[in-house]
Structure formats: C-alpha cells, structure tokens
Design a binder for these strands. Structure first.
Length: 552
RNA sequence: UCGGGGAUCGUCUAAGGGUAGGACACCUGGUUUUGGUCCAGGCAGUUGGGGUUCGAAUCCCUGUCCCCGAGCCA
C-alpha cells in the first residue's frame, strides 16, 4: 500500500475544483442494480467513487440502488450489497433508492410531454425494433409520433393507472430517428410492468428505463461526477439531452474501463448461472469472484482495496492478472496473521530415542513479522506427523528435506535424522523412524552444525483433525468468455477436500479468522465449521520456489 | 459499413514536446529456524508509415488493429 495513485478522473476533478465548475463540491455515487451479488469488478468501482469521497475534503458518495426493473431485483441482493460495501470499509453519505424518486421521475416525464418532447407509442417491441433502423441506416418515425400533447398526457396517465396491459404501450422521447447514435432514436423511457417491486410494492405499474432514470437520479441527488463504465459512453449524449430539455441540474458523466480478471468470469448473468446450475455452492462460494466469495475465501478488505488501487483507472480495455490479487492478499496476510502448523498430507514419524511417555511444551513464535503477536506453546512427543512430500527415498539434487541418513530441523523443536522408512505390503511408505539430538532443543545446535531444511510438524497425540478445502481456479481457460460456452472451461478440480492434522492451539479458532499454516499458505476458518469439525479454506498458497523449480 | 471509444514491457499503469518510470509476473544472487518474508540485481515496451521540431510516446497527416452500440436490461 503505497501512496495513492492518481488517475484521469481525479485529474478531471482537480481541474473542476480549480475552475469552480460545481461550486467546489465533489459528490459521487455507486449505483448498483440489486439483481445479483457484487463482484471484484464492482469493488474497483466502489473504491473509485467512495475513494474519491474519502480523499477530497468535504466530498460525498451515495450508495444508490438502481431498482428500476422489479422483474429482476430482489431484497436478498440489496442486503448483500449493503453488507459488502460496509465490509470493504466504506461509509455512504446517503443510502438511496431510485424507486424513492418514481414520483419525481413521473412528473419530469409529464413535463417532457408538455414540452412536446415525448409521446406514447403503441408499437409492439418487435415493431419498435424493426423501425429503429440499423447501424448504417436511419430508422423511421413511429406512426404515433405526432399525437397531440393532450392525448399523450391522457394516455401516459392511464398507463400509470394500470389501464393497459404489459407491453401494449411505451412512452418515448421524441428526438431523431435518423440519429447516428441509436440511443437517440426516440428511446423508450417508460414501459408498463405489472410487477411487485421490492420497495414500492404494487404502487407502480410503469417503470422508467435506465436512460431516463439514471440521469434524473444523479441530478436529484446533486451528484457532481457520475462515474460509470465504458459501455455507457454512447448513452452520455442522451443523459445530457434529457437534463438539458428538462432544464435541470446536470452532473458530469465520466466513463472508465471495467475490471476484467483472467481465469474467471465477471458478468452477473454468468455468475448467477454458476450458482443456479450448482457449479458452485452459492454466491459466496470461495471460488467465486464475488466480494462475499472473496471474503469467505479469506481475503481482507485491505487487500482488495490495495488491489483496486494497483490496477488503476483508465479508458482502455484491460485484463488484470489474478496473480496481482493474490499478491495483495499475501502481502497483507504476511504482516498480520499468526503462524500455525498443520499437516495436509500426514506421514507418521517415530522418534526412536525419545522417551515413550514424555511430552514437552515448546516455545513457538506467532509471527516473525510482528513481535507484538507474541508466542505460544506447542506439544512435542515421540510420535509426530510431517508432510509426506517432505521425505524422499531417492532425493534429487538440492532436496533439502528428509531422506535416509539426512538431518533436518523440526521447526521450534529438534534436529532429527532419518534412519529408516517402513513400508506396507504395497511398498508405500507408512512410517519413518528417526532419532533426535537432545542438544538441539528449540532448533539450534551449539556445534555450528548446519541443516538445510526446516520442516513443520504436528504432535500426533495432540493433533486435531480438520477439514481443509483446497481451491484451484474455477476455470482452466485464461479467458472463459472466449469459449463457445464458458461452462466448458470450468475446472473440474477446483475444489479438493482433505482431512488435515492441525496443532491444538487452533481448536478455538473463530469463523473468518486468518492464519498462515507454515510452509503451506494462508488459511481461514470457514463458516461451515461446527463444534465437532473445524473447516479451513486455503485462501492462497505461499510462493513456492521449490515447486516452481520442479515444475519441468 | 454508421456512430462512439481505445492502442506504452508478458500483464496493469505513469510520463502529455526534453533521460520512457513503477507494480505484478518471470530470472539471478544474498539473508533466513517457513525453499515464506526481506534485500540486491536482471529481463522487458511507446500499433505501422510519413511529417513538424534541435528534440515526438506526446503535435499533424495517413494506415492497421481492438472494444462498445440496433433490450419495453442496467
């Protein structure tokens, strides 16, 4: 987390502040549609708009639900969005709903009709599409375009009163059917929808379209800089046109490139599909790029905000590397998490020269990056587990771990030397016989003897079983969107569940708590944990230059 | 094809007439009771072609490529 980077949007705000364009106010907003859970791409937008409000003195940012389409929106999504924004650590100045302005929007529409700039059109959806023209040919005027103002007023009111069925009529702005920007070809601004709305119930049966609603929301809330993604660039002329025609306050819309990440998908539609079709456990599945998924995975708000900072804001399309997100997490967790020992793939070790019934309490430091984290005691006795991968019968060059006749350090404990490997009838190693050097307690020797490897371990008699969920990327293709069907790119091995052996101090770990399991990675306690069974998610592995070296 | 945007190391992002810089990734080496962290170093870029200029990533001309747009979605 270095110092705040600037970007072209902040440059514009700086300039506006210099010229006094908005009376030196800065007021942004984050306007999600509650039709799904927020994802890391939204986090970027949240950090942008809320971040500006945090950094400019006196600046504000609203959280506003763009709830103009009751057929797709749900209270569950509203709740999750509120939780996610809070969790990221942002505070809004006003919590707003577009639906709170439905009456004002209606009045504005009446105003537009009275100005002769809007009309009720009886064309069907199909007919509207056909008469809109194409990218290269202009459209043709609706036969209803020249209705009188009085007739339009009457019809629109009756639309509002529920006199007409869904789809039978719309209100359209009267602009220019030959406009090269399709959005300006008499866009629909109200449609009839007899649907139950999460906030207004059945009060309304006509609902405003995005283009009509959004600018009005911004204007009503006195937003100064309305930040949105690139695909709305073509809508800006319409945004400006409406507010100009209505002669009302006009904020400035600025577009930036949305966040894309490799090895994942980011559209709410596709994420919803993954949930609905049970490819994942839910919106908060730790493999999902949703904020709730990342939270459950063990990400911290700080790491996500740092990531948003580092990817920056620009206008060119880009795909950020998931490795950067992981880096931000590791960097944050390295500083703050306590170390623990856990064995993911246990191999029994018997220390033959250690007293049969003795148990020692050894001192272990909690976090070498943070002295204030203190230490803890860990039990040690004759039988322990180590990682299966930490022993090799025929070790290659540069293998620093255990082998027959090799000596290594057990972290915080003793040096041990392996004397024998015991195999079962299938030839699989089931146990190691080692001897320890009592003079190396704590992991030091006085004689200057060096060991190259240090292993983590867990005492068998005190070990606790834990369910450990190891995640791999959800998609095996770098760009799942490029597939014919993104579901074909789903990685069948994205979740591996194992039973690991963890040190006893982890017994009372709380849900959501993060740890570094020495040499294994960062893990956090999943909400599925119970009194009988603790469940850990691997948030991200440690960097592993040994594994990397041996890849090929 | 019409309109709107955009092209800088592998990736993301700075520099907007004056030494193309940072981060991630990757590669070396050092330190280390985590093959982690940390430290030092390295690799690597201005979309092509013209022009203006003492000097161009930046200004001009001209190509090329990419993205968005024809929902009663947002």
């Amino acid at each position: 987390m270095t110092e705040k980077k600037t970007n072209f949007i902040r440059d514009i705000i700086d300039e506006d502040l210099k010229t006094g364009k908005f009376d030196n106010r800065v007021h942004t907003r984050f306007p999600p549609e509650p039709n799904g859970y927020l994802h890391i791409g939204h986090a970027k937008a949240i950090c942008l708009s809320f971040g500006i409000a945090e950094d400019y003195s006196g600046a504000k940012c609203n959280l506003r639900f763009d709830d103009t389409n009751p057929t797709k929106e749900e209270q569950e999504y509203i709740d999750s969005i509120i939780e996610d924004v809070k969790w990221l650590g942002f505070e809004w100045d006003n919590l707003c709903y577009a639906s709170d302005y439905f009456q004002q929007m209606y009045d504005f529409a009446v105003d537009l009709i009275q100005k002769g700039k809007a009309y009720v059109c009886d064309l069907s959806g199909e007919e509207i599409r056909k008469t809109r023209g194409t990218l290269t040919e202009s459209g043709e005027n609706s036969p209803f375009r020249e209705r009188s103002i009085d007739e339009n007023l009457d019809l629109f009111e009756r639309m509002k009163n529920g006199d007409f069925p869904d789809g039978s009529k719309v209100l359209r702005a009267k602009i220019d059917m030959a406009h090269p920007n399709l959005n300006m070809r008499d866009p629909v601004i109200y449609r009839i929808l007899h649907a139950e709305h999460p906030h207004t119930g059945d009060k309304w049966c006509i609902y405003p379209m995005y283009d009509w609603a959004h600018g009005l929301e911004d204007s009503i809330e006195n937003i100064t800089h309305s930040l949105c993604t690139l695909e709305f660039e073509d809508h800006r002329p319409l945004y400006d046109w409406f507010l100009a025609e209505l002669e009302t306050y006009r904020p400035q819309q600025i577009e930036f490139a949305r966040l894309s990440l490799n090895y994942t998908v980011m559209s709410k539609r596709k994420l919803k599909q993954l949930v609905d079709e049970k490819f994942v456990l839910g919106w908060d599945d730790p493999r999902m790029p949703t904020i709730s998924g990342l939270r459950r995975r063990g990400f911290t708000p700080e790491s996500i905000r740092d990531f948003a900072e580092r990817v920056g804001i620009a206008k060119r399309d880009s795909v950020s590397d998931i490795a950067l997100l992981e880096h931000c997490l590791r960097e944050d967790l390295n500083k703050r998490t306590e170390r623990r020992m856990a064995i993911l793939d246990p191999l029994k070790v018997v220390i033959t020269n250690y007293p049969d019934t003795k148990t020692e309490e050894l001192d272990a430091i909690n976090n070498p990056e943070d002295e204030s984290a203190g230490g803890r005691k860990i039990p040690f006795s004759k039988e322990i587990y180590i990682e299966r991968a930490d022993f090799m019968e025929n070790p290659p060059r540069k293998f620093f771990r255990l082998g027959i006749g090799r000596e290594v350090r057990l972290k915080h404990a003793y040096y041990i030397t392996c004397n024998d490997a015991i195999k079962d009838e299938n030839g699989e190693i089931v146990e190691l016989r080692c001897s320890y050097d009592p003079a190396t307690k704590g992991g030091w020797s006085d004689d200057g003897r060096k060991v190259k490897g240090t292993l983590h371990w867990v005492d068998i008699s005190h070990a606790i079983d834990a369910e450990i969920r190891l995640f791999d990327r959800l998609f095996s293709a770098e760009n799942p969107d490029a597939e014919d069907d993104f579901r074909n790119a789903i990685n069948p091995d994205s979740l591996t569940t194992i039973i690991g052996k963890i040190e006893p101090s982890l017994k009372n770990a709380e849900i959501g708590e993060n740890f570094q399991f020495l040499r294994n990675g960062y893990f956090c306690v999943d909400k599925d944990s119970t009194a009988e069974k603790i469940v850990f998610n691997r948030s991200v592995g440690l960097r592993d230059s040994w594994a990397k070296k041996n890849k090929n």
